[in-house]
């Protein structure tokens, strides 16, 4: 199965990269883009065909390596 892991800064953490992109978009006239938060995206190919197992494995890997729980949270999609 494939797991997609989206890692983003927690809402309470300032994102200087997202802010810079938002400022650039505003200067290009995209005032309707109110805010931008930048994150990281991972695709994990997993040697399991059971969705629950895949999710648990992806979560373990995200907790341990892909995300830093001090500043980041993550969301997992399995397909």
């Amino acid at each position: 199965m494939r797991a997609r892991v989206f890692v983003t800064l927690k809402p309470s953490v300032f994102d200087p990269q997202g802010r810079t992109i938002a400022d650039a978009l505003h200067s290009l006239g995209y005032g309707a883009v109110e805010d931008v938060r930048q994150g990281k995206y991972f695709e994990l190919d997993l040697a399991t065909s059971e969705a629950g197992q895949a999710r648990a494995l992806a979560a373990e890997v995200a907790d341990k390596v892909l995300a830093n729980p001090v500043i980041e949270s993550y969301r997992i999609e399995i397909d």
């Binding site: 800064l9 953490v13 300032f14 200087p16 990269q17 810079t20 830093n68 001090v70 500043i71």
Partner: peptide, 11 residues
């Protein structure tokens, strides 16, 4: 140690 490092404020 507690905490984490973010990118510098002005990148």
């Amino acid at each position: 140690l507690p905490g984490a490092m973010l990118r510098n404020r002005e990148l």
